[in-house]
């Protein structure tokens, strides 16, 4: 049986690990709340934009989407995997990296694939094997719409300049703190949905023309879509970290309990041994 001092040291070290994981869990919970609030806050904007766009495109019969909807033969593909900058968040980043690799090796095997990584973890892993043209990990340090929009705009310009024929986002969609779903989403070209929307009855004045407004709104909605993806990834990171830190705390607690039991057993054994010695010593004196 391990000696008492060893067990005591282990109990102490497990205890301090538990404190750390517990603190990290709290921090993530607070950050998760903020991240979720941010998603909530952008919803009215996104919904109104979609509504406007849907209303306008329904009134116009011809296919709209402009240059952003251009379907070209797919030769050059840009993948945008979005991961976190920091680890300790379970399988979150591994899932993204795995999926990205499998897309490159299977679906886009014969294509010219380039990567734009967002998040240090994706960059570290993927830059070893594949062609990473750009890395925007610092985005998470200052996550504002303006910064995200800049990146989105750059990608959109590259698409217009025919640098890429297809742009795919790969990220974790936030469902709840315990569940994140890995999503591959086609960013460009835009998929024009042909679902029937009732024509808007109101007679609007349009300034400038409807077609021009639609052309103006599409890039806006693309930037919003990109922003939403980043926001989702951000919330997922904190959700996943909170869950995994919670599990780590639980595990540490189990371990500590087990060690305490072991410690008490060892202590009891030592005491029993001592009593035995004293008793037998006393017996020996008697005779």
């Amino acid at each position: 049986m391990a000696n008492l001092k060893d067990i005591r040291t282990r109990i102490q070290s497990v205890g301090s690990t538990m404190q750390i994981t517990n603190a990290m869990k709290m921090v993530s919970a607070a950050k998760l709340k903020k991240a979720q609030d941010a998603i909530e806050k952008m919803r009215p904007y996104a919904e109104k934009l979609t509504e406007l766009l849907a209303g306008l495109s329904a009134n116009l019969d011809k296919d709209l989407g402009g240059d952003y909807a251009a379907q070209r033969e797919v030769k050059k593909v840009l993948l945008v995997p979005i991961t976190s900058n920091r680890g300790l968040c379970g399988a979150l980043n591994t899932n993204i990296i795995k999926l990205t690799s499998s897309l490159i090796e299977n679906k886009y095997k014969d294509k010219d694939v380039e990567l734009l990584t967002i998040g240090k973890k994706a960059y570290d892993q993927l830059s070893k094997k594949y062609k990473v043209v750009d890395n925007k990990s610092e985005l998470f340090d200052d996550l504002t719409y303006e910064n995200v929009a800049k990146i989105a705009q750059k990608i959109m310009n590259d698409f217009i300049d025919k640098k890429y024929d297809e742009v795919i986002l790969i990220y974790n969609r936030f469902k709840n703190a315990a569940t994140q779903i890995v999503i591959t989403e086609q960013f460009l070209p835009i998929k024009t949905e042909s679902d029937e929307i009732s024509k808007v009855a109101l007679d609007f004045i349009y300034e400038p023309s409807q077609a021009e407004i639609v052309l103006e709104l599409i890039p806006k909605s693309l930037r919003t879509q990109f922003y939403k993806a980043i926001r989702d990834a951000w919330a997922s990171e904190h959700g996943a970290r909170m869950t995994s830190m919670h599990k780590a705390t639980d595990n540490a607690k189990d371990m500590k309990d087990e060690l305490t039991l072991q410690y008490n057993k060892a202590r009891q054994a030592v005491i029993t041994g001592e009593i035995l010695e004293i008793v037998s010593g006393a017996e020996a004196l008697k005779n």
Partner: peptide
């Protein structure tokens, strides 16, 4: 600030969408 110039909207303005 509309694309074709600044304009003002008052109460009961006609329905409008503008960039």
């Amino acid at each position: 600030p509309g694309v074709n110039g600044t304009f003002e909207m008052l109460n009961n303005h006609a329905p409008i969408v503008a960039i």
